[in-house]
Each structure stands twice: as structure tokens, then as C-alpha cells.
Design a protein around this nucleic acid. Structure first.
Lengths: 115, 115
DNA sequence: CTACTTGTTATCCATCAACTAGAACAACTT
DNA sequence: AAGTTGTTCTAGTTGATGGATAACAAGTAG
């Protein structure tokens, strides 16, 4: 599991964990059915509290990214082919760079467009 | 000024204000040179503290979106033609909807791609 | 069945960012 | 000269974040 956490980041820890897993799943690095490390294990290896990882996992479950079951752990649930999405995102990044649009503005635009 | 705030949102107030202004400027609704309402006025009309608006304005200034001058207020600074960026973003939203990817995942992907 | 693993839930606490409040000040406009 | 507006400062409140601990429920593995 290639999850890294930056304790000094502005983003909350549980959100960082969630974002990393989302990216891994969307990228196809974690096929459907893959078992994620147990919340306790991941918490220990990231040197973070159990509840922090658990909150990330529960957010992911609420979005249908993973399934959670006691005794079995967290399993990747949904993972279609995201290639078109990645191409579209790459195009956005290129356009933003080209136009010298700050990242915060690009994110604000996408955020609004997604509502 | 069409700025609306949702006090119950998870996003901080100052960030919401900033995002709305970013979107307005990028959309071309606020041409270069347009005066934004003074921080005091906007704070009053949003029923928010002066410092909250000021923090949003200063973030925008740091990104070159607006200029701030005492006595004159906030003025839209930079506003190239963002049409290509908007098209790219629309494509991302379409792809995400098509693939049934949750908004949080789409944002996580863009966030990572922008680094 | 038994032991173990793992998510779930609950309580309590510490810290920090966000927000508010009030005030004085500096630069600019009119 | 008067008014406007951003800048800076101090101080307090609130809520989210994160940690520590513990008991519990549902599944797995033997």
C-alpha cells in the first residue's frame, strides 16, 4: 500500500487518507476485491489514530468506493475503467497551466461544476 | 454581486467567498477592472465578519486574481479567456457522471494532478 | 465450538483553525 | 478636510480534528 501522509498539510489527515485511496482505486492500482489493510494496521503504519483511518474508510464506503465488513476488513467495491476521466483531467491541468490559472481557481471551478 | 454563502457547509466561509469570486472572474462575469464590494460591505451583506471577507480577498490577491488598495477597494486584476479551461472542465464532469464517479473522487484526482 | 480479527460505537480530552469582536491606523479618493 | 477602505493588532468563542481507551458485534479461521 502506497499511502503517504503529510501531517503538516492543511488537509485533514482522514481526508488525505481518503484521497489517496480514491486515487489508487480510480487509477486501477487496486482492482475490485482487493483487500485494504485493516484500519488498525493502516493506523499503526501511518502513525495515526484508529479513528482517523476509520473515518476515511467510512467516507469511502458512503461513496461506494469500498465495502466494510467486520472480521473481513475493507474491500475495493467499485472500479470501472477510468481512462476517459483521466484523459479529461489531464486536459484540464494542461489548460490551467497554459492559461496560468492558479490551482485554487481550477479546483473552485470544478467544485462548482460538479454540483 | 451574486455571492451566496452556506453557513452549514463543511467548507470554511472565507474559502466559499474566495471560490465564488474565482468562479465569477474565470467565467468572465467580472471583467478586468471591475470593483468588488468593499470588504466591509460584503461582510455586512453576507452577515459575516469583516476579517472573514478580508482573508478571502487576501488569498485572491496572493493568487493574482484581484488587486487591493486602501481607499479604493478590490479590483479584478487578471482575466484571460478561460473558454478552453471551461470546456475541459465540462468534459471532466461529463466523464465523471458517465462513469458514476463520486465528486469527492473526481476532486481528489484533480487535486493530485495539479501538484 | 473457540480464538482471533476487524469494524462499530461510545466517552473523554487536547489542540488548533475558523470566526467573531472591537479598535486603531495608513493610504487612497473625493 | 472628510470619508472610504485595506491593514494590523489584540482577544475571545466555537467547532472540527485527532488522540486515548474501552467495550461490543460480526465475521473469519482453526
Amino acid at each position: 500500500m502506497l499511502i503517504r501522509i503529510d501531517p503538516s498539510s492543511a488537509d485533514p489527515l482522514f481526508e488525505q487518507v481518503g484521497q489517496q485511496v480514491r486515487a489508487l482505486v480510480a487509477r486501477g492500482d487496486l482492482p475490485v476485491g482487493t483487500r485494504l489493510p485493516s484500519a488498525r494496521d493502516l493506523a499503526a503504519s501511518l502513525d495515526v489514530n484508529l479513528h482517523t483511518v476509520l473515518r476515511a474508510y467510512q467516507d469511502l464506503r458512503d461513496d461506494g468506493v469500498i465495502e466494510l465488513r467486520r472480521g473481513r476488513g475493507a474491500v475495493v467495491a467499485h472500479a470501472p475503467d477510468h481512462a476517459p476521466l483521466h484523459r479529461a483531467i489531464a486536459a484540464v491541468v494542461a489548460a490551467a497551466r497554459e492559461l496560468d490559472v492558479p490551482p485554487a481557481t481550477t479546483l473552485a471551478l470544478l467544485k462548482e461544476a460538479l454540483r
